[in-house]
Write a protein that binds this DNA or RNA. Structure first.
Lengths: 203, 203
DNA sequence: TATTTTTAATAAACACCGTTTAGTAAATTA
DNA sequence: TAATTTACTAAACGGTGTTTATTAAAAATA
């Protein structure tokens, strides 16, 4: 019987409907302005209906986080695999920062906000987090294979790099550069990334 | 007439009463659990009274942020001024990370949360931010004077270092290390800091 | 001192919020 | 056709930040 298949399909469609409405409000008006009631209004259903498709608000934001990671990985596909790995590492950093600058809301949801992480019960299975870390880890390993970062744990090197680009991005996204003139902030970030990349070539 | 002086004093006392009650709830139960009604309950006044002493909730959290920075600067006083500046820089990083680990709630309020920053109207006057950046900037300048970071803008070097230690701290505070086993996370952070410090000695 | 004015505090309301429960109408199964 | 399951929702629960109108007390003025 095709009824259960159709029902499965309808359930998926309804989930997407909710998700897209939520993402739309989130990207246009920010996290604080997304309420279950507002999403319900947008899709012309009652608020209670949303709870038939998502356990709670956190789970909804975890689903939007997944969409954000999809876009994030799309950015990374522009990093050419043919170059010298140390250049690829440089490129990776640039793409990371560019993603954060162009999609501050998504970046926030992925790496700063508490909400989506609260719906992960088993600490180890944050797949999106692992996947992004693996991309970086692989490139660092290729650098090590070419003689860079001699005598250093590649795992730690990768974490240093991630911490640095996340620090740059999150200080910007969460407005902790207010002591610098606004028209200099973006330049500071790009310059810092450049200098850091030069350091890495020497190590 | 001493009446206006007494009134001034009483206003200050009331502000402190509110602030301390709020800080107490914040540190014990976290940001989400601090409500105006709960603060009012704790001090045995009506919720509306709080608005006679603080414009809104953001301003209240900005005041708690100031207290957090006071503690932060206390930590920094343990950084010895007699050492070689590059060792002082290493020490500064260690103290920064230690503060974040020992006071995650305060760290969050200072460098991650949106709430307190929303009550700063004039972008440039985030005094606490400037002050902490100056401490770092001064030590970097001393390193440059001793021949470190040759040919590099000390301002940018300082921002790289801050971004890195903030990245380490905030990934930890906001639970973005869930893909690593819990008992390894703290070690990863300390190891990353150590390796980064070794890098800096070479530059 | 008596009266007016100012101040400090609050009760109550406004407009929201996430989530749960009990009930209904439609779709599906028997 | 009757019984059951499913999809949905109205209404309520217990919260939230903030504003307004009112009152009682304190201070200033006459």
């Amino acid at each position: 019987m095709g009824i259960s298949e159709r029902k499965e399909r309808e359930k998926q469609e309804m989930q997407d409907l909710i998700l897209n409405a939520a993402a739309k409000i989130f990207l246009k008006e920010g996290f604080d302005k997304v309420s279950i009631r507002k999403i319900a209004d947008a899709i012309e259903y009652s608020p209670a209906t949303i709870y038939l498709y998502f356990k709670d608000k956190n789970e909804l934001f975890y689903a939007i986080q997944k969409q954000a990671f999809d876009k994030f990985f799309l950015y990374f596909q522009t990093v050419s695999p043919t170059e010298d790995p140390i250049d690829r590492l440089r490129n990776l950093g640039e793409v990371y920062i560019r993603f954060a600058m162009e999609n501050p809301g998504y970046y926030d949801l992925m790496f700063i906000m508490r909400a989506p992480m609260e719906s992960i019960e088993n600490a180890l299975d944050w797949d999106e987090g692992s996947k992004s870390h693996n991309i970086l880890h692989e490139i660092v390993n290729q650098c090590v294979a070419k003689g860079h970062f001699k005598g250093q744990d590649p795992f730690i090197v990768a974490h240093i790099i991630w911490s640095f680009v996340h620090g740059l991005s999150s200080l910007h996204v969460r407005e902790r550069m207010k002591m610098f003139p606004e028209d200099q902030r973006e330049n500071m970030i790009l310059e810092a990334l450049k200098v850091f990349n030069d350091w890495m070539k020497k190590l």
